[in-house]
Structure formats: structure tokens, C-alpha cells
């Protein structure tokens, strides 16, 4: 069967879309926006393997279906529900302004490009933006984790960080055993599950989801 369009052509634009989502998440104060952004990113991640690897087999299809279902639907649904029960809509006052977050995000993305050029990629991968996009997403996750007060925003930061790592994992998709991939997803899901339970307790204890109240323990 003749190929009309090389699927690799789509990889680059989609990676740029992933990077753009990072900035949407960094600049938004509405929690719903960030949940949607992270969910969309999760679905995109599920698409990549079909574009990068010509033959992914049943194993790959199963894995991607689970990834998309979990990252694109399951976890976001669960977070939205937590948001509704807690009656929280916005991040009121992040540690640094949204402008500063965006700026730091941009600097980090630049540094990610620079850093990944120092790592020797194999010729099959050398043309791809995959590694810089992965590192930039990890960095964005870090920014969200450290500069947001709302517990749910920190969970979203953790999810973005995981998304970034997942992007890198795409390079190894063929070689990583299914057991490990599923284990990673299971841990991610359980992690978010436990975190949201803690958020519920947080909400009951302080009538708020802000981690600013968590300041009793210090030297």
C-alpha cells in the first residue's frame, strides 16, 4: 500500500501543540481550564506512538487505549469531581504572577532545547523535537508544583511532569515491557487517587483546598 503522507510529518506540529498546552496551563487561573489542558495533552500523548512507530502491534494499541482513557478521561473526570465537591474554581494568588510563570516557562523551554542538544540522539530520533518537548513539559510541571497554592493545581503539575516523562518514554516504546508500562500507569492512577483523598480531608479540615494552611510544621 502506497503511503500518501508520511505520518512523521505530523509529529513536529503535534509536539509544538504539546508545548503550547504547557503555556496555556501556566497562564490559566481557572482550574477547569488547566484540567482540560492536561487532559488534552494526555490524549495527544496517546496519538504519538501511532505516528512514530510504524508497527506497534496489539500490545501498543492496548497500552495507548489505556493511556488515553486514563490521562484523557479518567483522571480529569476524577479531578473535576473533586473540584466540584470542594467548590473551588480558581487559583487565587499563585506564589509568582502568571506573567512570571509564563516567562519562566519560556526560559525553561529554551534551556530544554539547549540541554537536549548536548545529549547524543540516535540518527532515527535526531530530527525530533521529542526530547526538548519532554524536558520542557517536565519543567512546566515543576513550575506548577512549586508556584501554585491550590492542592489540585499541584496534582495537575504532577500530572504534567508525568506527561513529560511519558513523552521521553515514547522513544523506548518498543522495548519497554508491557508489565512495566502498565505498572507505571497504575502507580500514576493510584497516586492521583490517594492525593485526591487527601485533598478531600484537607477540604474538610480547613474548609479550603489551599496548601497555604499547611504551614504548621516547620523549624
Amino acid at each position: 500500500m502506497a503511503e500518501f503522507v508520511d505520518p512523521l510529518l505530523f509529529v513536529e506540529p503535534l509536539l509544538i501543540l504539546v508545548l503550547a498546552i504547557n503555556f496555556v496551563a501556566l497562564g490559566a487561573s481557572r482550574i477547569r481550564t488547566v484540567i482540560n489542558a492536561v487532559a488534552f495533552q494526555g490524549v495527544l500523548l496517546g496519538v504519538f506512538p501511532f505516528l512514530i512507530h510504524s508497527e506497534i502491534g496489539l500490545r501498543g494499541v492496548v497500552l495507548m487505549a489505556i493511556t488515553m482513557a486514563l490521562k484523557g478521561y479518567g483522571i480529569p473526570w476524577y479531578l473535576l469531581r473533586a473540584m466540584r465537591t470542594a467548590e473551588i474554581q480558581h487559583e487565587d494568588k499563585p506564589v509568582i504572577s502568571y506573567m512570571a510563570s509564563l516567562l519562566l516557562g519560556a526560559v525553561g523551554t529554551g534551556l530544554a532545547m539547549e540541554f537536549s542538544s548536548t545529549l547524543p540522539l540516535h540518527e532515527d530520533h535526531s530530527h525530533m523535537l521529542l526530547v526538548p518537548a519532554s524536558l520542557a513539559t517536565v519543567w512546566t510541571g515543576f513550575l506548577m508544583l512549586t508556584t501554585r497554592h491550590k492542592a489540585i493545581m499541584q496534582v495537575l503539575g504532577y500530572l504534567m511532569l508525568e506527561n513529560g516523562i511519558f513523552l521521553f518514554g515514547l522513544l523506548l516504546l518498543e522495548d519497554l515491557p508491557l508489565l512495566v508500562e502498565l505498572g507505571v500507569l497504575l502507580d500514576l492512577f493510584t497516586g492521583v487517587f490517594v492525593m485526591v483523598i487527601i485533598i478531600h480531608h484537607l477540604n474538610r479540615e480547613f474548609s479550603s483546598m489551599s496548601t497555604e494552611h499547611l504551614s504548621a510544621l516547620k523549624e
Binding site: 480531608h201 484537607l202 479540615e205 480547613f206 496548601t211 499547611l214 504548621a216 510544621l217
Partner: peptide
């Protein structure tokens, strides 16, 4: 409250 903070 304190153990909650620690767990988080």
C-alpha cells in the same frame, strides 16, 4: 491537621 500536612 498536622498529620494531614505531613502526608500531603
Amino acid at each position: 491537621a498536622r498529620s494531614l500536612e505531613a502526608t500531603w
